[in-house]
Amino acid sequence: MSDMKPHLLPEWAPHAALWVGWPRLVEEWGGSLDGPRQDIARFIRAAAEFVPIRVAAGSDEAEATARAAVGDCAEICRIPTGDIWMRDTGPIITGTGETRRAQAFRFNGWGGKYLMPGDTETAAAIADHEGIELSQHEMVLEGGGIDADGMGRLLTTGQCLLNPNRNPDMDQAAIEASIAGALGVTEFTWLGDGLLNDHTDGHVDNIARFIAPGHAICQHPSGADDPNAETLQEIETSLRRAGLEVTTIPSPGLVKDEDGNPIPASHMNFTITNGVVIVPVYEDRYSLVALAELSALFEGRKVIGLPARHILNGGGSFHCMTREIPA
């Protein structure tokens, strides 16, 4: 191979496997694991019809409960995990076939907010299980903070990547240089802020995603009380200004937690894998429109909407809890 530079593939490239996290830390889930495990088991069963699923179980109890719930349709893997957020703690795989490399960035608990034992060991454990060589990087980066189109373009947010709680000694130029070297990215589109009350400091996979080279999708506000109305409009403007083709679908609108606070529900946190796109849904008004529009955009893939309210209580959704392994 003459070109050994790393190449970050788009999520719609063929997958050899899809890793899914299994919840194990009851204190991270408001005292009960039943709800999130139910949502995730439903996701695993749907995805397993399209791609081999590997469930990351971080304790004996997690391994036993995952095996009981989905052991018939997924491989249950005992590896160190803090909790389910494979997108952020797992490795970012570049290349295909023999050129595959597992790029492992430093993980610091989303800027030191949520430090869970096992999270810093997950990336190396997945790479080892897959038999893919590991490259370690000093920079702090979570996979949910970036989104790529496979042609060198990358979406990210200043709120997350330029946050002093991640890489205080690096400016934007240094961060771009580091990512370009590790992932082969050539063009950066910087968005501003993410969704209201997002624990991750505005991960881009909750607000904008590539669905084809140079083609990004984001959300328009739903309902007069959409808590992210201004932010969503700003995101769309920024994407268009960057010269990308932009399509919008409805947001889930105002979705509240038990205490009545808006939670960062988003139709953007979908997982793309072989032949299917699995979309988190939180209500049945705007989500029906979003699913119909996504079906038209993802030609040749089945689009499935599944409830994800319980997972969001832990801080994320389907994309946050999965990590694909390119074929």
Score class of each variant (00 low, 15 high):
2 S>W: 01
4 M>W: 06
5 K>M: 07
9 L>G: 04
10 P>W: 09
27 E>I: 07
27 E>C: 06
28 E>C: 10
30 G>L: 06
37 R>P: 03
41 A>H: 04
43 F>N: 00
47 A>I: 00
47 A>D: 13
48 A>P: 03
48 A>Y: 02
49 E>P: 00
52 P>F: 07
52 P>H: 07
53 I>P: 01
56 A>G: 10
59 S>Q: 03
61 E>S: 08
63 E>R: 07
68 A>L: 09
68 A>C: 06
69 A>Q: 06
69 A>L: 06
71 G>E: 02
72 D>Q: 14
74 A>L: 05
80 P>T: 14
82 G>E: 03
83 D>T: 09
84 I>H: 11
85 W>T: 01
86 M>S: 10
86 M>K: 06
92 I>L: 15
92 I>E: 06
95 G>K: 06
97 G>S: 12
98 E>R: 09
99 T>D: 14
101 R>F: 08
103 Q>L: 04
103 Q>A: 00
104 A>N: 05
110 W>K: 01
110 W>Q: 03
116 M>R: 12
117 P>I: 06
123 A>C: 14
129 H>R: 14
134 L>K: 15
136 Q>N: 09
139 M>C: 08
144 G>W: 04
149 D>N: 11
150 G>T: 03
151 M>L: 04
152 G>I: 02
152 G>H: 05
155 L>S: 04
159 Q>K: 00
161 L>G: 03
162 L>H: 03
163 N>R: 10
164 P>T: 02
170 M>W: 05
170 M>G: 02
174 A>Y: 01
174 A>G: 13
177 A>I: 07
179 I>D: 04
180 A>P: 00
181 G>A: 15
183 L>D: 03
185 V>Q: 12
192 G>N: 15
193 D>N: 13
201 D>C: 11
205 D>E: 05
205 D>F: 08
212 A>F: 06
212 A>P: 10
215 H>N: 05
220 H>D: 10
220 H>I: 08
223 G>Q: 01
229 A>T: 11
232 L>V: 06
232 L>M: 12
235 I>N: 15
236 E>W: 10
236 E>N: 08
241 R>V: 09
242 A>E: 11
244 L>K: 00
246 V>A: 12
248 T>E: 02
260 G>K: 02
261 N>A: 14
263 I>D: 00
264 P>V: 09
266 S>L: 05
270 F>C: 10
272 I>H: 00
275 G>F: 09
276 V>S: 00
280 P>M: 02
282 Y>I: 08
284 D>G: 11
286 Y>G: 06
287 S>R: 00
288 L>N: 08
294 L>R: 01
294 L>Y: 11
299 E>D: 14
302 K>A: 15
305 G>D: 07
305 G>H: 08
306 L>R: 14
311 I>N: 02
313 N>Y: 10
313 N>M: 14
313 N>G: 15
313 N>S: 14
315 G>S: 11
316 G>H: 08
316 G>N: 07
317 S>A: 15
318 F>P: 02
321 M>F: 05
323 R>S: 13
326 P>W: 05
327 A>Q: 11
